[in-house]
Amino acid sequence: MREKILVGLAGLAGLLLVRNLYVMLLELPDEAAQGAIYRIIFFHVPAAWTAFVCFFVALVASVLYLLRKNLRYDAVAVSATEVGLAFGAVNLVTGMIWARIIWGIWWTWDARLTSMLVCWLLYAGYLMLRRAVEDPTLRARFAAVFSIFAFVDVPIVWFSIKWWRTQHPGPVVWGGGSMDPAMYQMLFLNWVPVLLLGAVLTLLRMRLEETQRAVEALRQFR
């Protein structure tokens, strides 16, 4: 059953993606100021949103783990965090490619870039912490605590860096103009398959985590 749901969701994500790519590449015109490269936003922004959804899911799962002490919640937390990190990386890399072409530089210490990088490093720390703990229940407990700390920290990071950079203005982030409605709509339309893909990957990763746990349990009776 679970297998069928996974395949179904992945298929749906694939279909939507093909449809969106068709509209994006063939129907929507090039953006007036930026040319063809603006299309990267249809993946750049949904990737960021998906990453934050993943980190939020990880937070909820971490709190639930601490309350219920059920290792399934830990599996959800680690899977969501890993997938969130992957989408965060997509966000950072696509952003850098766009910046290279529009701004002429790969990176600038703008508020959004800096806070996304800090956020990414925080959750990378989460995975490192997990690797350093042998005992599964101890690992789940420590990781859950760290996940809560990280999630509380991210909004503070965002506000502080925004203040910092508004005092010393950086390069223009966005043309300042508003987006064409058709393009704006596409942004949300493309979020659907990206989010679905995130869900499929999280479920796959959870299955892996559970199999791994089963193997570990069997090893104990060797």
């Binding site: 800090v118 720390g125 490192m128 350093a132 920290d153 990071v157 502080s160 860096i161």
Partner: peptide
């Protein structure tokens, strides 16, 4: 592990 976990968390405070 301690500095790797703590420094990113400290970003707003240190800043």
């Amino acid at each position: 592990m301690l500095p790797t976990l703590v420094y990113p968390l400290l970003v707003p405070g240190l800043m």
